[in-house]
């Protein structure tokens, strides 16, 4: 065993891995935000609330309908995706022509309402959600004990992130979508229903948030404020990665998870501010973000 800055290397590897796990949540959440911002130009402050909605829907399904975790992974994103579509149709679609600020304020208000409703019905201290049978226990890696569930989280979110990136950047559907945001009039002239496309994109972003919520339910406290606890960090991730850049959101998500993990070893008191320090530095040096397209 060797030491790095007085910390045994085994402990350090453990922390790197933990960082990667937390990074997967950042990546998954910032991915949805980036998709919505990139395609709709809406700064979606309701993203945290949708994430919480995902976790709570999973809890409700389990406790009132007996639907287990695996089915929840499929059903919850669909349900919350529909909620997203409804939000887009009823409210957001009127705002596209206005300043960003209106979308931000509307979604922020929505987040407060959704959170308040859940707090009223379920109280602030949250509800239990067990880890699914199949993923209980863990592996002893020698340098740390890795719970099976966390390994699953890293694997699954990497798959989801890659698929989303591939869908938007490498398929013809993605190309149409990107074209529709660049120049809606022209795309419409080709006979494509642009408003419907935008609506489905918001639904997709909401579904991604809900998916992250389901994945978080077994390890984090399923409580009404779980969304607002994480959303600010996720916004920082998106800003660092470059607003609207999908690849940037994913890579920054994982990267910041690791940096935060290391801070927790060397200077734990600063671990919840380090992300913002990095954000400030990045904004000074590269205002469009690390992977930003617009400069």
């Amino acid at each position: 065993m060797f030491e790095i800055f007085g910390i045994p290397s085994t402990a350090l590897f453990g922390q790197l891995l933990i960082g990667l796990i937390n990074g997967s949540f950042y990546a998954l959440l910032s991915l949805g935000l980036a998709v919505i911002f990139g395609m709709l130009n809406i700064i979606n402050f309701a993203h945290g609330a949708l994430y919480m909605l995902g976790a709570f829907t999973a809890f409700l399904l389990l406790h009132y309908a007996g639907v287990d975790y695996w089915w929840a992974l499929v059903i919850v994103p669909i349900v919350v995706g529909i909620v997203g579509v409804v939000i887009e149709r009823l409210l957001l679609q009127w705002l596209y022509k206005l300043d960003h600020l209106y979308g931000l304020l509307l979604t922020f208000g929505l987040a407060l309402i959704i959170e308040g409703m859940f707090r009223n019905f379920f109280g602030a201290s949250g509800r239990p959600y067990q880890i699914p049978e199949l993923l209980r226990g863990g592996q002893n890696l020698g340098f740390m004990f890795l719970p099976n569930y966390r390994a699953w989280v890293v694997f699954f979110s990497a798959v989801v992130c890659f698929s989303t990136w591939f869908l938007i950047e490498r398929t013809s559907l993605g190309a149409t979508l990107r074209a529709a945001t660049e120049n809606p009039t022209l795309v419409r002239a080709f006979g494509i229903n642009v408003p419907r496309m935008i609506m489905l994109t918001y639904g997709f972003g909401a579904a991604l948030a809900a998916l992250a919520g389901v994945m978080a339910a077994p390890i984090y406290n399923v409580s009404p404020q779980m969304g607002s606890d994480i959303i600010i960090v996720v916004f920082a991730v998106v800003v660092i990665g470059g607003m609207g850049s999908i690849l940037g959101a994913v890579l920054t998500g994982f990267g910041l998870g690791i940096i935060e993990g290391l801070t927790k070893v060397f200077f734990p008191e600063a671990s919840n501010t380090v992300v913002f320090v990095i954000m400030a530095i990045v904004l000074l040096v590269k205002p469009a973000g690390l992977f930003g397209r617009r400069g």
């Binding site: 453990g14 933990i18 734990p268």
Partner: peptide, 20 residues
Amino acid sequence: TVNVPFPATDFSSFLLQAQA
């Protein structure tokens, strides 16, 4: 002892230190 920023969501890092 490890001082955990307040409030916190993820304790895994700190738990790992406690375990070690």
